[in-house]
Amino acid sequence: MDCPLCKHQPSGLPLAVEVNDLWLSFGQVPVLRGVSLKIPVGQLVALIGPNGSGKTTLLRCMLGLQQPDRGTSRLLGNGRLDQVLPRVGYVPQKLSLERSFMITVREFLALRLRQTRNWFWKSRTSVDSELVGHLPDIGVRGILDRPLSGLSGGQLQRVLIAFSLLGDPELLLLDEPTAGVDTPGEKSFYELIAQIHRERKLTVVLVSHDLSMVFRHASWVYALNGVVCCEGTPEHVMNAESLKQAYGIHVSPYHHHHHDPSVPGHSHGMV
């Protein structure tokens, strides 16, 4: 299904993500029905769509966490996941950590330090001295002694981002990163992602249900509903007709909550 209004990304740039004709069914339920997309390096791309549209499944297929029925995906120009995964960061939707597991933020982050072969034998000071050089200043340094299972949703997401950035990734994949984060936390979280994208010049692919965030920060948007219904700049995809195709119902992003002149179309709609 090709949206007549769709714009395609400029060709010729090296690709960070290339997905070709991906199909996947869970039992009798088709989730991905021939998804193809090409994401050039350096973009901040959002995957949007209603519940069950295959956003998370698509991300999981890209990372090899789910085997597609057919189709291929390549990350950073390499089809071999074992070679490319060290260059990829991943922030999962949540961390279903048992309260009985007393791992601290410091111990968790030490697992991602290249120099750490076995965290158990590393002293606290040696982990800290390694973290100082690598840990981005995203509000994690003050909570290194806290157990991971006792963090708030927002703190945990920051720790997960810090964890993924410690590997110096070229591509960062985030799956609904603000699930479990309160609304003010969500806003600052997306600003943080945009800042990381600008400063590190890495490619970011973000699964989101939050259209206002997409409008503010994404450079390109894919609207998904089993297939790619529509792609383009946020202004283009936020067009109500395109969204209707993606969500199968009439939704408008133009639900005003407050005016923000910095945003074209000043939309703050949430689906």
Partner: peptide, 22 residues
């Protein structure tokens, strides 16, 4: 167990993260 402690710790924290970390 001590030889595989890094991987086992990450696996116990989150299986998907462990996979992506190799």
């Amino acid at each position: 167990v001590f030889w595989k402690l890094n991987s086992l710790t990450l696996l116990s924290a989150q299986e998907d993260l462990a996979h992506v970390a190799g």
